[in-house]
């Protein structure tokens, strides 16, 4: 498969497979232009913006777009990773590499309370997500005085996201009020806020999962190798394939890790993230598998299973 970047596709007369009429942008070009526009608005209007970095594929696209938006300058905001200490090792490696290669300032926050209490996904259930992610995020935003935080959420992911604004306001207590969202018209974003309030900004709101993958493919964006199939040690637990990524994993008496050809469709804390059996080793194969697949994306993530309105509730409490 030859790599055809968007930029070269923009040159009329270049040897792209289908020549573009100069007045016609492709859907990815329109999405890219919109995301860049949003990022520049935030940079111009917020006092202390930050980009939330979760190391997943959506974050990878967001970072890539940020680099484009301010090229040849550096993005005028740092990256923030709210760490749970339970991510896959491959994710930590990617995090360091991306920050270095793109020249971002990287901030890592670990909730000191969760560190002290040794919060982990084995003993603490929902408190794990709540303390590391929700509380950790609030702490980090408050500690640095960030008034605008980019997140890589998409509207096609989940029902409550479909209705969330691109500029989504948080009260001084960092709560989301779905009943009181500002009208958002044209390309005009009202970034004004009262003291203590902050904004979560979702520059890739209008991208779908397929758009993300296709863009990664066309722009050759580095992603964590876990998205590609490989033989990995997993155990089957409660119907899910969980990878034994380090020696903190508590095997049950009847469990023995077995090597299986698996990959991950979403990435989170490794003991909470289900793998799928797959042989997809290239991006086209991943996309092919995704398109032919029979279950929607978030099934692999334990967080949504609790209750159907769980995402909306978590968001109101300050989860991204």
């Amino acid at each position: 498969m030859t790599q055809t970047t968007l930029a070269s596709a923009r040159h009329p007369g270049s040897d792209t497979p289908m020549s573009l009429a100069p007045d016609r942008l492709t859907h990815l070009q329109r999405l890219e232009a919109e995301s860049i526009h949003i990022m520049r608005e935030v940079a111009a209007e917020a006092e202390r913006p930050v980009m939330l970095y979760s190391i997943g594929k959506d974050s990878a696209v967001m970072l890539h777009l940020a680099a484009k938006a301010f090229f040849p300058g550096k993005p005028p905001f740092p990256l923030l990773h709210v760490d749970t200490t339970w991510k896959f090792q491959a994710m930590y490696e990617m995090r360091e590499r991306m920050a270095r290669d793109l020249g971002f300032d990287l901030l890592v926050h670990k909730n000191p309370d969760a560190v002290a209490r040794g919060i982990n996904p084995f003993d603490h259930g929902p408190a794990h997500t709540d303390l590391w992610k929700t509380e950790g995020l609030k702490q980090a935003l408050a500690a640095h005085g960030f008034d605008a935080a980019f997140g890589g959420a998409r509207r096609d992911e989940e029902k409550s996201r479909a209705k969330e604004r691109i500029f989504s306001f948080r009260s001084a207590e960092q709560r989301w009020d779905p009943k009181n969202q500002r009208p958002e018209l044209w390309r005009l974003y009202n970034a004004r806020k009262n003291k203590g309030e902050s904004i979560r900004v979702f520059p890739i709101s209008n991208w779908t999962e397929l758009d993300i993958w296709q863009y990664i493919h066309l722009e050759n964006i580095p992603i964590v190798p876990l998205y590609f199939s490989a033989a990995r040690p997993v155990v089957e637990r409660d119907g899910a394939l969980i990878m034994v990524d380090d020696d903190r994993f508590r095997l049950r008496p009847d469990e023995t890790p077995m090597m299986k050809s698996v990959r991950f469709r979403t990435l989170g804390c490794y003991p909470l993230t289900g793998a799928v059996e797959s042989t997809a080793e290239t991006l086209p194969q991943i996309i092919q598998e995704m398109l032919l697949t029979t279950t929607s994306e978030r099934q692999g993530r334990a967080i949504d299973h609790d209750q159907s309105a769980s995402m909306e509730k978590k968001k109101q409490e300050g989860y991204f």
Partner: peptide
Amino acid sequence: KPADLIETDIDAYLVQHQHKSL
């Protein structure tokens, strides 16, 4: 349903999808 092309020739499908307008 583009399923046939996805199954038989994903690269061709991706080229087609890449050039879609919005």
